[in-house]
């Protein structure tokens, strides 16, 4: 369970988040919605431990997150959280294979699960792309690779920042289906920022920023 309590965040005196409180239960497909510039991504980044709030508290299960402890937040990002970004954020010159296994540069090799890898490669249709460098892939292919990289460590939380924003409808539907599937079958918490209403039926719970 993730609990955010009175989270505040400002950028250069511009208050982006004001006393945001929410609770996300394990295994929930959770959406954060709202108009552009309302602070959706900022909240998501704080929940994903990529950014630090100015004030407020964040709990992962019962652990109060100490954002000043960079080693601990890095550890939680590596073990508990997987990220899927709108801009994919792949390493362009590395192959698909190297991109997917990039987290294991920082993790013990014993945490690598061959079955999970095989399942992801097959499920995301990445077999024929494994040796290609990431920068030659299409948008849909890049996002599938990003999804594989996010899931290869078997994280409990998957953070998605508008992952369908650069995809066509078919690819977007495929990705949403996949995320819904892992949320249900593997009881993973998926937190997604989106401004689209097209996939509202996928979400179990939604936090909406008022305009």
């Amino acid at each position: 369970m993730i609990v955010a309590n009175e989270i505040n965040k400002s950028f250069n005196s511009n208050k982006v988040l004001c006393d945001i409180s929410l609770t996300i239960n394990r295994g929930t497909f959770f959406a954060i919605k709202g108009p552009s510039g309302c602070g959706k991504s900022t909240l998501l980044n704080i929940l994903g431990l990529l950014d630090t709030p100015d004030s407020g508290k964040l709990y992962f299960d019962d652990e109060l997150i100490n954002f000043k402890n960079r080693t601990r937040t890095a550890y939680l990002r590596s073990r508990e959280i997987g990220f899927i970004f709108q801009a994919y954020n792949l390493m362009p010159k590395l192959t698909v294979f190297d991109n997917i296994l990039l987290p294991f540069l920082y993790l013990k090799k014993s945490l690598f699960n061959q079955n999970l890898y095989d399942t992801l490669i097959e499920r995301l249709s990445l077999t024929r792309l494994l040796t290609k460098p990431a920068d030659v892939l299409s948008g849909g292919e890049k996002q599938r690779v990003a999804a594989a990289r996010a899931l290869i460590t078997n994280p409990n939380i998957v953070i998605c920042d508008e992952p369908t924003g650069n995809l066509d409808l078919a690819n977007a539907r495929f990705l949403m289906s996949l995320l819904k599937e892992i949320s249900i079958e593997a009881s993973k918490t998926v937190i997604m920022v989106t401004h689209s209403n097209d996939f509202d039926s996928f979400f179990d719970d939604t936090f909406v920023f008022e305009g």
């Binding site: 990002r77 590596s78 990220f83 540069l105």
Partner: peptide
């Protein structure tokens, strides 16, 4: 920096 950011996002700590 993007590469550094990606690596940090997927769990690399400062020391690494």
């Amino acid at each position: 920096l993007p590469e550094i950011g990606i690596k940090k996002a997927i769990g690399a700590n400062d020391a690494f």
